[in-house]
Design a protein around this nucleic acid. Structure first.
Lengths: 175, 175
DNA sequence: TCGTGGAATTAACCCAAGTCAAAACCCATG
DNA sequence: CATGGGTTTTGACTTGGGTTAATTCCACGA
């Protein structure tokens, strides 16, 4: 069976309003979410209340807390809707079980995990090797759409600088 | 079949001296490597000659360039031995094909990818949310062994600071 | 025991970004 | 069209870490 169908057949749809959370840091949550429409952000909240944005999630993307799914731990980040969202939730268990029974699904899962791992690897590279300014430059090049969708405040928290910092970077870059 | 056996049966052993590369940034390389013994480092080299260390690889770990394996791109980083190493190389293709034929292997691969993805997620968190000093603290807590195995220079490049920077952090931390 | 070369530390100086606080801007709404 | 809330920009000041270069440490071989 092909993955798209598997998801619709085994998952449960849900919709969320802007501002609503799908799960929060510390929750137990054992599902993978597929985004049909909308926009979400995954973020960390530090002990002193600072927000750091892990990623933005767009239609066609999927997200879930690996930690919470796999190791029986709790979610290390929160997932919140920035716009009205239509999602499909799939218990991780369901997916995991069919790895051993359905070769098509297991192929699809491997691809899913591979593309996920590659994304993380790129992000790791950017955070390790590039300056905030370079990361900003790359963002404008690779996904300019995102700039329209979220506040500059959020872009900053995604790039790993403060809003004030990003404002200064912008000025520098355009000059 | 169980993964360990699968690897020994389908892979080819190789050994490398300290200083020898397994592959270099820019290479085409379509294998996954399993480390039997030794120590390696995966690193990025920037245009202006600066080194940034992606990770250290210890016995029992596995590594390969996802980019080069999957998307037909070339390796985004280099892999070099820090000590004499015994490795097993497994063509990615072999692994990928048996996902569809052998449920045990495909389960093992999914686990492999999951643990890989989780590691990357932790690293992403550290680079995004923690200061260099916090990262250093965490390193001493979580894997103090590594401090004995590599130079402080390399620890610094792994943490994302210069050797000079790390020296200052150390002084601050011990006080 | 004395060099010698690589690793680590220290010092002096600089710059990017953080912090805090005060404008300025930008709308939506009444 | 004025008001008020949120977002962005600016300014003044501080700080962590980069850079370069000098110095100290140490292990090791002659």
């Amino acid at each position: 069976m092909e993955l798209g169908r598997f998801i619709t057949e085994n998952g449960t749809s849900l919709s969320r309003e802007p501002g609503q959370h799908v799960f929060r840091q510390g929750d137990q949550n054992a599902s993978l979410y597929f985004v049909r429409t909308g926009l979400l952000k995954a973020y960390y909240l530090s002990a002193d209340g600072k927000e750091n944005i892990k990623s933005f999630i767009l239609p066609g993307d999927h997200i879930g807390s690996l930690m919470a799914n796999h190791a029986g731990k709790s979610c290390s980040f929160s997932l919140v809707c920035l716009k009205q969202c239509e999602l499909v939730a799939l218990p991780f268990r369901t997916l995991y079980q069919s790895v051993r029974t359905d070769p098509d699904i297991s192929g699809a899962i491997v691809d899913l995990l591979l593309s996920f791992a590659m994304k993380k690897e790129v992000r790791e590279y950017e955070l390790l090797c590039l300056s905030a300014e370079d990361r900003y430059r790359r963002l404008i090049e690779s996904t300019p759409e995102i700039l329209k969708l979220v506040t500059q405040n959020e872009i900053a928290r995604y790039l790993g600088v403060t809003p004030v910092g990003l404002s200064r970077i912008k000025k520098r870059v355009m000059a």
